[in-house]
Amino acid sequence: MIPAPFAYERPTTVDEALQAIAAGGEDVKILAGGQSLIPVMRLRLAAPETVVDLTRVTELRGVREEGDVLVIGAMTTHHDVITDPLIAQHAPLIAEATETVADRQVRHRGTFGGALAHADPAGDLPAVALALDAEFVLAGPNGRRTVGASDFFVDYLTTALEEGELLVEIRVPKLTGSWGVRYEKFNRVAQAWSIVAVAAAVRRENGHIAEARIGLTNMGPTPLRARATEAALAGAAVTAEAIADAARSAAEGTSPSSDLNAQADYREHLAQVLTRRAVSAAAGL
């Protein structure tokens, strides 16, 4: 399928990109890795007036440290995320989840920021960003602002990004202390989106679970935290029973969709099973 005609801009700096977006007319789409945008354009589900291609904006690529925070450029590819030593050390949950994204070809083109800005609730990275309390740095015509993950994901395919704004980097607090992590993904064929997935980070202290952060993929129009389970796990013993008890509330407050892979009640059940498995693994059981 051939996309509808569109204008094309390929800036080399963030400032140029912002100008191109401002000048691009009513309907501007930003092309990062193109792994979601190009297919929907080819299917003519999207027909933007202007496409602003960020692939030459080199300042948006790479990972760096700023004290207790890891800063990931929005245009860092999935492949670069998976192989980055800083991410492996300070945010291994991101690497583990990214390894499950689609296939090798997609991971070489698709980007961390692109996947987050697309905000597909079936995508793997939004729930991880939410679980890790990441912050999103948005550049716009009036400068930069920072939005927390819980405010960034607004609705289905909708984020806090305003017209004219660009996601430039994601700030992820380093996990310090004895954390274990796990991404439990459930899908039918290897390259498919998650039917449900659970991102868990668990900090152990004195033989107990001190803190658990649990992100849910595809359990509603946005990624969600399993707050009830997190609360139940705080201070809980590291036992299969305690974790199973806590996991029973994993679907509380969710609103999963029904589709040909799963009806809502089955997704709720999966959320519980996968939460139990993810937390158990993250807690070292």
Partner: peptide, 19 residues
């Protein structure tokens, strides 16, 4: 029976016949 709706992944790309 399965739910018949296609997945919402991909922006809900189901058929292009409706374009």
């Amino acid at each position: 029976a399965r739910a018949t709706a296609g997945t919402n992944a991909y922006g809900g790309a189901q058929t292009e016949s409706t374009a």
